[in-house]
């Protein structure tokens, strides 16, 4: 019998996944700043402390480096910590433990240990939080072998990928766009997983492949709906995982549509769009291309405070529509 499907917000879906993980496995626990009675800066842990107690919903001091290291140490010695960063920007304070320790410990020790830690990063702009609370740093971590880096774009994936991350023996970094927390979607009850390393074709089309990540998936779908009226048939690929990347799904899509656009919120230069573009240029799909590849990414600036400037800093639906039109009509 199919599980009951409800409408849940992205934040509720994550909370439900964490509760299921804790119910299933006593080694799973949550760590982070103000995740207990406060409920987390974005209310993702919410009231979990009432159900699981302060030992399993563990408030840490404001010590990102030390806290991340404690999570790594607990993971190596048998626990299954889920560590919440209050904002993804604060990963900069913990890079040592993430990049030098979590990512490399198994390798350096010749496979003698695994590091089953999950880290959650509320990311992205759009909340007026300005330059130090709005970044999209997933490509930084995506550059590090030993880590897995995912960006669920829907409540369904947020729950299923978090449960996959908890079951994964290696460190999994989850980038959650803050504007998605309130987005609603269908989520089945109970346990299910969505595999790490598999992209999802969210909309099939013939004329153009848009590879999007995180919040840009919905924007690409919105753009595709408008473009359909103009006779442009867009395929939207939700990359979902940036390491390890599902290359084949993107290659197959580009071979079908012959055009590629990458849309992501992080700063455009040296980002995920560069990686996807280069991957296609190196693949058999290159010969199928009818036009140059287009990247739409964030501006080469910090995220500004002013709301109009902030919007202008990252790709919006009209930007995607305009770029797609030009690409398909051969303006470029």
């Amino acid at each position: 019998m199919d599980a009951m499907v409800r409408e849940l917000s992205y934040a509720q879906a994550i909370q439900e996944a964490m509760a299921i993980a804790m119910d299933m496995d006593e080694r799973v626990f949550l760590m982070g700043e103000d995740i207990g009675v406060y409920g987390g800066a974005f209310q993702v842990t919410g009231d979990l402390v009432d159900r699981y107690g302060a030992d399993r919903v563990l408030d840490t001091p404001i010590s990102e480096l030390g806290g991340a290291g404690v999570a790594v140490g607990a993971a190596v010695t048998g626990m299954r910590p889920i560590f919440e960063f209050q904002f993804s920007d604060f990963a900069t304070l913990a890079m040592e433990q993430i990049v030098n320790q979590a990512a490399k410990m198994r390798f350096m020790l010749g496979g003698e240990v695994s590091v089953p830690v999950v880290m959650r990063f509320p990311a992205g702009s759009g909340t007026g939080a300005a330059a130090q609370h709005s970044q999209s740093l997933e490509a930084w971590l995506g550059h590090v072998p030993g880590l897995k880096v995912i960006q669920p774009a829907t409540p369904y994936d947020a729950k299923g990928m978090l449960l996959a991350a908890v079951a994964d023996p290696d460190p999994v970094m989850i980038f959650e766009h803050k504007l998605l927390y309130k987005a609603k979607g269908p989520v089945p009850e109970g346990y299910y997983t969505v595999p790490i390393g598999k992209a999802d074709i969210r909309r099939e089309g013939r004329d153009l492949t848009i590879v999007a990540t995180s919040i840009m998936v919905q924007k690409a779908l919105d753009a595709a709906a408008t473009l359909e009226a103009e006779g442009i048939d867009v395929e939207v690929v939700d990359l979902r995982t940036i390491r390890p990347m599902d290359k084949q799904t993107v290659i197959d899509s580009v071979k079908k549509t012959s055009r590629l656009m990458c849309v992501y919120e992080a700063v455009k230069t040296l980002g995920i769009g560069a990686e996807v573009s280069a991957m296609i240029a190196e693949s058999e799909a290159f010969d199928y291309l009818d036009a140059p590849i287009v990247r739409l990414g964030g501006a080469e600036t910090p995220i500004p405070y002013n709301p109009e400037l902030e919007k202008a800093t990252v790709p919006q639906v009209p930007d995607i529509i305009a770029a797609a039109r030009d690409l398909v009509k051969g303006v470029r």
Partner: peptide
């Protein structure tokens, strides 16, 4: 690891929070 040595570390201070994590595991 079999004898409880979780490893030397190339980063000065890198092992200290990891030891605290191992102690948290012991307590939990």
């Amino acid at each position: 690891v079999a004898k409880g040595n979780l490893g030397a570390n190339g980063i000065v201070g890198g092992g200290i929070p990891i030891a605290v994590g191992a102690a948290l595991s012991s307590k939990m």
